[in-house]
Amino acid sequence: MLIAGAIVGAVAGAALIFANPLIGPGDGRIDDLDRALRYDLPEAAIVLTHSQPAFVPVRPDGVEELWERTVRKSALGLIRLSSSDGSPAIASRVLVPSERTELLTAGVIVDDVWLVTLPGEGSLYVLGESNVWPVAKDTLVSVSLLRRAFRGPRDYVATAGLAPDGRALVVGATGEFANREGRAVERYRIESFTRDKGFGGVSAELRFVLDPLQADGAG
């Protein structure tokens, strides 16, 4: 009876984690983030490489994979984005699973860092953490494991830090962005997900704001 009880308890625990609101989607504010860079996956991914099973295939075929012991859990992307006025931008993005991952209060956390260049304006860094549990729960767990249907389209805010307000930090690098800081949030819209074909139609938006430029000598 002890073992039967333990099994029932474990199943109840798993159900609690599945429904755990503490590891749900991020709540980073976006109302003051005045700039947006948009992209659609997989079309916007010029390069995507990692060493994980081919759930999200590498692009292009033959690209060097991250197979070495120290980088094999990481992913590297080269993404083409566009501003709301149609101006192009390009970003290098690196994802690394975070030691902060835990399923009771944080979620499945990945360090999510970007180097974004807007031609003619400059480059900036986005230093964030993303909680991928909400997406994984609705797709890999619900659809692939529990064989439920994906109820889409669904919107997600993945950003979960590094700033204290739950948003990502923006650090200006070059050009007009040099010596400036700000905040950023990334949102996704997933149109569909099936066990056979995986993700279908993913659009994303990186919204950010930079602190106002201060005149020389101003406090």
Binding site: M1, G5, A6, I7, V8, G9, A12, G13
Partner: peptide, 9 residues
């Protein structure tokens, strides 16, 4: 057993 299983998970 239920409590142990729940606490363990």
């Amino acid at each position: 057993g239920v409590l142990l299983g729940l606490a363990g998970v």
